[in-house]
Design a protein around this nucleic acid. Sequence first.
DNA 1: AGGGGCCGTAAGGTTTTTCTTACACGGAAG
DNA 2: CTTCCGTGTAAGAAAAACCTTACGGCCCCT
Lengths: 117, 117
Amino acid sequence: MNVTNVPALTGNELLKVLAALANPHRMRIVGALSGGRNYVSRLARDLGMSRPLLHMHLQRLEAVGLVSGSLEETTGGQTVKYYEVSRFALDLTPESIAEATRTLTDRAESGQGKERE
Amino acid sequence: MNVTNVPALTGNELLKVLAALANPHRMRIVGALSGGRNYVSRLARDLGMSRPLLHMHLQRLEAVGLVSGSLEETTGGQTVKYYEVSRFALDLTPESIAEATRTLTDRAESGQGKERE
DNA sequence: AGGGGCCGTAAGGTTTTTCTTACACGGAAG
DNA sequence: CTTCCGTGTAAGAAAAACCTTACGGCCCCT
């Protein structure tokens, strides 16, 4: 559900989260979703980007836990995928970064479950 | 709380700061400098990276104001460049990002507005 | 001289990231 | 059946980031 906050996430996680946020499109996506959930096609229209592109960025954001999507069915039988932002609060200071640095494996990745499927 | 931010930086600035931090080397540099200032050659040895590489990353960090360097002369007449971190405190939440998004020019370079067409 | 410390930068190649175009699926309604 | 809505993915080009090697300079000491 959330990306950890008070306890502070590991260096690798922080690195990936920052990388995920360090992109204009993805920043906009998070910003847009912070106003309420939305489904892919509509979000693409709202943000003025192609579906495939949005899809890619959503994947990137979901991979680090910043957003989460759920497939749902409308009454009309349509399959729609809704996305919503996770609640997170990162405190970035020289000290918090120094702290994170101690659990930095570099090679990033090392994805590892933090949530169930 | 002066140099970098307090009133909240613009979307473009935030974007660049995040991009600057989203790198293992640069994260380590900030972390290392948070323990005190240091000069280039020594920092390179401490972090185990080449001088040219470190130089590049320092440039990137300095460009967004996360660190600052100053050339100094030792008693022996040696010219040494010391770097230190700026004090900053970023609060990253879906809301703060949504807010920053409103001043996001996207492909802008710390400059002025660019119209879309 | 030659060596050592420090500073910088240009050239070049590799690897990532980003983005477009094109395609495939399902269901509802004309 | 065709068209419009939604979903997803693959392939390849373009652009940006990253890193190394190699070179240039300055000053001091043996």
